[in-house]
Amino acid sequence: MSRITRAFTDGKVFIPFLTCGDPDLSTTEALVLAMAEAGADIIELGIPFSDPTAEGPVIQAANLRALRGGVTTDAIFQMVRRLRKICDIPLVFMTYANVVFSRGTDQFLRQAAEAGVDGLILPDVPFEEKEEFAASCRTHGLDFISLIAPTSAGRITRIAREAEGFVYCVSSLGVTGMRSQITTDIGAMVDLVRKANPEIPCAVGFGISTPAQAAAMAALSDGAIVGSAIVRLVEQYGREAVPHVRRFVAEMKAAFS
């Protein structure tokens, strides 16, 4: 059983997101350990990209801060290797197709697997294009995480049947970022996934920023993903962000366990 699959066997799952290298990699490393201790079940690690077209302003700014700080894919792999020696939490890379492709897709995934990464999310690679990346993921034992969106009508069954790890259920139209309300019928989306593939868990992301929202989304699915709200704390507190993020993750996790 993969680390990701195991994470879903014990109650609702909380998945926080961080942009690697924001503001620097030693802070990212400390944040990962703090989030794991505070109850995170899986951690999504963003490899920054110059032009993150699926991100709202908060994560866009984090990408640019990290790149200005000089973070590289190699340095991120090294950080994961260090983390893997002391921490067993499932780690999923979230980045854009060109970051993977430009290194050589197979080489990227081999190195990611060697470092101890468990999965890959590429928001600019839909079902139709996924084999280019998913095939190498399978070769190296990573889960290629598929996304479904409120506009996925007629596509969810196909996507769910071939899904690996978990299905990333995009809660709302638009880009990442905090929203006061989520109006999509998440329950209906999750039902379609479960009908098509009873084995695959569903986690809901985009727009979740409060413990109450996270609890509501997790109640309708198998877990909740939170990005911008955490990145905002890192933006606000920089290298001093660890205790703030630790407290935030603990509150989130407490809300639905």
Binding site: P123, P126, T151, R155, I159, V170
Partner: peptide, 12 residues
């Protein structure tokens, strides 16, 4: 070529 876009836009 191809279609490297978010799932949200695929049906569009």
């Amino acid at each position: 070529g191809g279609q490297y876009i978010p799932e949200t836009l695929m049906n569009a």
